[in-house]
């Protein structure tokens, strides 16, 4: 699949935003972390900005962004619709939750309710995003049980890295909390690793033989494509990253997205103050970059059934 930058930006940015706000909600609900209200407010705004940037950027790849509102109508059947609906529903909850940090009119109970709602909606929105991909039978590398967990886990991890910066700003980045973030980071990349292992072993049912129904005549190869130049289908669905290249990129994603932030997190837990903050900001930058690479690969490694008609394999 063509790794469209708007979609990569959308999923990684909104994922991080939902992740962050979820951590904040968790913080509010559990009181595990001491965060200054101002820092929390700013963090919530950052999360909302990330979410909004993501959602906005997702409309960039629409042919008719001005009609984007229509995308909410088919929640009964369409995960894209559902995602839209949940994203929209999440806004008021998140706004209340954000304002609640400093606006006294919002009662603690309301605040807790808003936090809980925000947490749930952030989760279902990210799940929906994952489901948009995971529901596509046409793309075996997406249509599996690992995709949604990956989306959720990586959202939690990038949100976690953001959250650790918030903690540092609030001077509350305790070793325990950084270890928690580290744990989430490790788990999320572990899931991703399992995903990769899964798709590498996957034996897709469909071949050019089943696609054309000519399999009974033997191996089916393409002699001539319908057109000598590339068409929409091939540009959109036919993009394929070379296996060798993909392996390299996977390693790079892991190094940048997991190893470096993990080391930095460990270092950060041993430091404090500006140094700690700096280490965590760098960890965050790496972590998010890792997710962007991962997301790019998620598309680039995906093979669409239509390419079978062009003599390729899934």
């Amino acid at each position: 699949m063509d790794p469209a930058y708007s979609v990569i930006l959308f999923t990684s940015s909104s994922g991080a935003g939902y992740g962050l706000i979820a951590w904040l909600a968790l913080a509010r609900l559990t009181s595990l972390w001491e965060i200054s209200p101002v820092a929390a407010l700013v963090s919530c705004l950052v999360a909302l900005a990330l979410i909004s940037t993501g959602l906005l950027s997702s409309t960039f790849h629409l042919g008719h962004p001005e009609r984007a509102w229509r995308a909410m109508s088919q929640w009964k059947t369409s995960w894209l619709s559902r995602e839209g609906v949940f994203a929209i529903l999440a806004y008021p909850a998140a706004l209340v939750f954000t304002a609640g940090w400093i606006w006294p009119k919002i009662s603690p109970a309301m605040m807790n309710a808003a936090a809980a709602l925000t947490l749930v909606l952030a989760l279902v929105t990210v799940i929906s995003t994952g489901m948009i991909n995971a529901s596509l039978k046409t793309i075996p590398r997406w249509h599996n049980h690992w995709v949604v967990p990956v989306y959720v886990a990586l959202a939690a991890a990038s949100g976690g890295l953001l959250f650790s910066v918030v903690l540092a700003v609030s001077d509350a980045a305790s070793t325990v909390s950084l270890v928690a973030v580290l744990g989430v980071l490790l788990i999320s990349w572990q899931i991703k690793w399992l995903y990769w292992r899964f798709i590498d072993k996957q034996q897709p049912e469909s071949t050019t033989g089943t696609a054309t129904g000519l399999g009974h005549l033997g191996t089916v190869t393409q002699l001539e494509a319908p057109h000598t130049s590339e068409n929409y289908l091939l540009k959109e669905m036919g993009f394929q990253v070379a296996r060798k290249h993909a392996i390299k990129l996977r390693r790079m994603a892991m190094n940048i997205g997991l190893i470096l932030p993990a080391i930095l997190l460990i270092l950060a837990s041993a430091t404090a103050g500006a140094l700690q903050l700096a280490l965590l900001v760098i960890a965050l930058a790496f972590g998010l970059s890792g997710v962007v690479i991962e997301r790019w690969l998620f598309f680039a490694e995906a093979r669409h059934a239509v390419t079978l008609f062009y003599g390729r394999s899934l």
Binding site: G63, R67, S78, L80, A211, N231, M237, V306, F309
Partner: peptide, 21 residues
């Protein structure tokens, strides 16, 4: 009604959807 999100073309295994950019 179409917003041009292209998702339907991703969902079609037969390559029957044609996006007019």
């Amino acid at each position: 009604k179409c917003i041009g999100c292209k998702l339907c073309s991703w969902a079609c295994p037969y390559g029957a959807r044609e996006y007019d950019a």
